[in-house]
Design a binder for these strands. Structure first.
Lengths: 214, 214
DNA sequence: CCCGAACCGTACCGTACGGTACAAAGCCGG
DNA sequence: CCGGCTTTGTACCGTACGGTACGGTTCGGG
């Protein structure tokens, strides 16, 4: 029972859920994916997941807590594998960079990511705005840190040349994602070429090297 | 009375609003900007704009129609000035391109744009999803068309080199916007440098030329 | 076997909000 | 001045949903 042991409103920094709770959150996630925020009602979730509303409120406090828990739970599932031996030589480094970009796109364009981004954005003009922060901190910042490490390693080995790793990462992000993410969020369908994540990542890395290659 | 003359559900393709209606929509917009979708209630808008709910429903049909009208109205206000003499020589063309990028950022990062994007995204997992389409067609596609024209002109004069204008534009978009847009949508605050739109646009164009300059 | 904790299912409450109805008030052409 | 419109303000209705209460059931420990 994470909520009763912690001071309860600490943005789920530490949260670990029980198996039952995770199962429920998984149901919540699927409801979100196919119906958006409106489809995730406490009664509906209780029915879908075969649990009682009372349990929901006991576990997550209120509906906002539930939403935050869903985001936190999904975020906890995403962890890029540690890049090992990524800088062996120039070619494998570039391969790893491309793989990273591919996985970035795969995460961003995945339907659960899209659903959660929609959810968080929809809530992001409220007083406190936990969801947006959660998604930024547990999502984007993790990835960005990973990316910076990779890029810095590349620079250290002389494969890349840049001043600010964060800035370089942002450029890579922009080259890979372009406006596809926002278009997906707005309900557009990805064009055929845009579904070829590896291809998209490859050209992005291509252009990235033209800008920051040593 | 636009709605009674048209078949009513035609996505406001032609819509023109009366002065009174525009005033009301302006109020709706300000409510949206500061409070998000939840803050835009029919009763609230009626009170704020000193009009009756009955008028709202007469004009816009239902709440969804109102939302669509807000989006359509705001979109109708955005029109990039026609670029004239943009291709006089290489330097002025580049200046115009930078100006375009700057204005793109200004629009995208403006608080009303952010509010409307949030609104549309929040609604974008509904059956029909007018808002997302509206925003894409009346917003992004207009801009993209403008950009393609500009870029093609540049290529024609030999300042740029690329195969697909759309693709080139997307790269420019990515270089300029990066992940700032989505971060703003998630409630993040733009960093100091990111508020220097001209600077951001300039470096973006800089990099763009490294990729597509002749 | 028994006790208590957790949990399920359901029924219930309060309220906020979308949508409608209506009386009173302004506005305008004749 | 009058009759017909649009608009306003208010009052009202129905409902969906967040949140709570409670009896019944399962399950693990003593």
């Amino acid at each position: 029972m994470p909520l009763s042991s912690a001071p309860a409103d600490t943005d789920f920094e530490d949260t670990a859920f029980t198996a039952r709770q995770e199962a429920v959150l998984e149901h919540a996630l699927s409801l979100l994916v196919e119906g958006g925020e409106k489809a995730l009602t406490t009664a509906g979730l209780a029915r879908t997941a075969n649990c009682s509303k009372e349990s929901l409120y006991k576990w997550f406090g209120d509906r906002d807590g539930l939403l935050a828990a869903v985001v936190a739970y999904q975020a906890s599932k995403v962890h890029f594998p540690p890049e090992s031996g990524a800088t062996a030589d120039a070619a494998t480094f570039r391969t790893h960079l491309t793989a990273f970009a591919t996985e970035l796109l795969a995460v961003l364009f995945g339907e659960t990511s899209v659903a959660l981004n929609r959810l968080s954005i929809g809530q992001s003009n409220r007083d406190d705005n936990r969801l947006g922060r959660l998604l930024r901190v547990r999502g984007k910042q993790m990835i960005s840190a990973k990316a910076r490490a990779l890029l810095e390693a590349g620079r250290h080995r002389g494969y890349l040349k840049f001043d600010d790793a964060e800035e370089a990462y942002q450029v890579l992000y922009g080259l890979a994602v372009r406006d596809v993410h926002i278009r997906l969020l707005l309900g557009d369908q990805a064009k055929a070429e845009e579904r070829d994540l590896k291809g998209q990542a490859a050209t992005a890395v291509d252009r990235f090297y033209k800008l920051f290659g040593a």
